[in-house]
Design a protein around this nucleic acid. Structure first.
Lengths: 181, 181
DNA sequence: TTACCCATATATAGCCCCGATCTATATCGA
DNA sequence: TCGATATAGATCGGGGCTATATATGGGTAA
């Protein structure tokens, strides 16, 4: 009955509280815009979540038929949905979930050939720099306070990550050069 | 057949490559020791993972009966298990998964009563400081290179997080004082 | 002293979520 | 023109997490 905690249903409600959207658009928010640094969800969970929210009366749907395109199902949050979402924000928040295959793999760098370690590092640095660049893009005004906080937080974290990784990488390069002699 | 990617089975294999352990001990590594900043897993996934690894011949079990305690099932990695683990480290690593209910909730701070926002921030700051303190504890020598990297990485990230959060919190306090006038 | 919680240990059911895949169509670049 | 990419929705299977169950003993609060 009540929303679990910060599950995909709750996340969809939050997105829809900002304005109507289709399932496809919700997914795009995670891929393209700033959200993806803190939350994400897949089609395989978004579409069922929207169906269930509709059943529960927390959102409503209207079908927009388009020419030469599949129909769009545009979802809107209802008053009950707003209340349920606000309610979930007042309850204790679950802790962050984080899994970094990269850092886990690095714990075993002594078992791996050196070029593989360098490759893992370089790949991860590139990813991190791409995400940081996204976060550094100036957002069009006006911006909500919460967005300002989130973007600032993301920038601070990614800058620290990239700095540490670059430093570590440069030391590794030195070691590699010595080893190559 | 082949291990998915960086799933719980792979993570268990990695832990066991460092030494024998029970399911319970593996879980404790995520709760108490340094691992939890980068990977975690629950009993509900660890025990089935160990069963399946046993079936697949990647780990072996021996039962240690204890007095006045439930039996311990001590798992050891096999040669095939080591090969499978090494193999998964050579394949492209999946991206980090991260979900922060806190940051998501902060995106809607304009909808929430001010004391609730302060409460969320303070709770999160406290959690982050606790984790940072854990990471700052000097580890007993000798330490593997991978651990040095991971701990340094974790420290850098958590320090940046705590700095940003404290800064933001102090500005918020100022705003609150002004609003109270 | 009784009740309750916590720690040690293992295990499962049910729900939730993700990746892969499928169905359509249209556009853009090679 | 062929393939890749984008729009748009949907589902299945496998895997993971929450909550709970089973045992037992120690510590602590009422």
């Amino acid at each position: 009955m009540g929303l679990g905690f910060m599950d995909v249903r709750t996340i969809c409600l939050g997105i829809l509280s900002r304005g109507d959207a289709t399932g496809y658009e919700i997914k795009k928010l995670f891929d393209d815009d700033g959200y993806q640094h803190f939350v994400e969800a897949s089609f395989g969970s978004i579409y069922p979540a929207l169906s269930r929210l509709t059943q529960e009366g927390l959102v409503s749907v209207r079908a927009e038929s388009q020419e030469k395109r599949p129909d769009r199902k545009v979802y809107s949050i209802t008053d009950a949905g707003r209340r349920a979402f606000l309610n979930s924000l007042m309850k204790p928040l679950p802790e962050d979930r984080h899994r970094s295959p990269f850092v886990f793999a690095m714990l075993f760098s002594h078992l791996l050939p050196h070029p593989r370690v360098v490759e893992m590092l370089d790949t991860y640095i590139e990813h991190s720099e791409t995400k940081l660049a996204q976060l550094m893009e100036p957002k069009p005004q006006p911006q909500l306070e919460g967005e300002r906080f989130a973007v600032g937080f993301g920038r601070a974290v990614y800058i620290a990550m990239v700095n540490y990784l670059r430093q570590y990488r440069s030391e590794l390069k030195g070691n590699a050069a010595e080893a190559a002699e």
